[in-house]
Simulated assay, not measured.
Amino acid sequence: MTTWITICDTCKQEGWDAGDMTETDGEAFASLVEAAATGLQEVKTRRVSCLMGCARACNVAIQGAGKLNYTLGDFEPTTDAASGIVAYAMAHAASPTGQVPYREWPQAVKGHFVTRHPPLPQDE
Rank of each mutant, 00 (worst) to 15 (best):
M1Y: 12
M1C: 05
M1L: 04
M1A: 04
T3A: 07
W4Q: 08
W4E: 13
I5G: 02
I7M: 08
D9R: 12
C11D: 04
C11K: 03
C11Y: 01
K12L: 14
Q13G: 15
W16D: 09
D17Y: 15
A18G: 03
G19K: 05
D20T: 05
M21L: 02
T22W: 07
D25R: 03
D25K: 13
E27C: 01
E27D: 05
A28N: 02
F29T: 05
A30V: 15
L32S: 15
A35V: 08
A36P: 07
A37D: 11
A37V: 10
T38H: 07
T38E: 06
L40A: 15
E42W: 01
K44I: 12
R47W: 05
S49G: 10
L51V: 03
L51G: 05
L51Y: 11
M52T: 10
C54E: 10
C54D: 04
A55G: 01
A55V: 12
A57H: 04
A57C: 11
C58S: 00
C58G: 11
N59Y: 13
N59H: 11
A61Q: 02
I62F: 06
I62P: 06
A65M: 09
L68S: 11
Y70G: 13
Y70S: 12
Y70C: 09
L72G: 02
L72M: 04
L72H: 03
G73W: 00
D74I: 10
F75M: 12
E76T: 08
E76Q: 13
E76Y: 06
P77A: 06
T79C: 02
T79R: 11
A81M: 07
A81C: 11
A82Q: 08
S83V: 11
G84M: 13
I85M: 10
Y88K: 08
M90Y: 00
G98F: 00
G98Y: 05
P101E: 06
Y102Q: 07
Y102P: 15
R103P: 09
R103M: 06
W105L: 09
W105T: 14
P106M: 14
Q107V: 12
A108S: 08
A108N: 12
K110L: 15
H117M: 01
H117K: 10
L120S: 09
P121K: 07
P121W: 02
E124P: 09
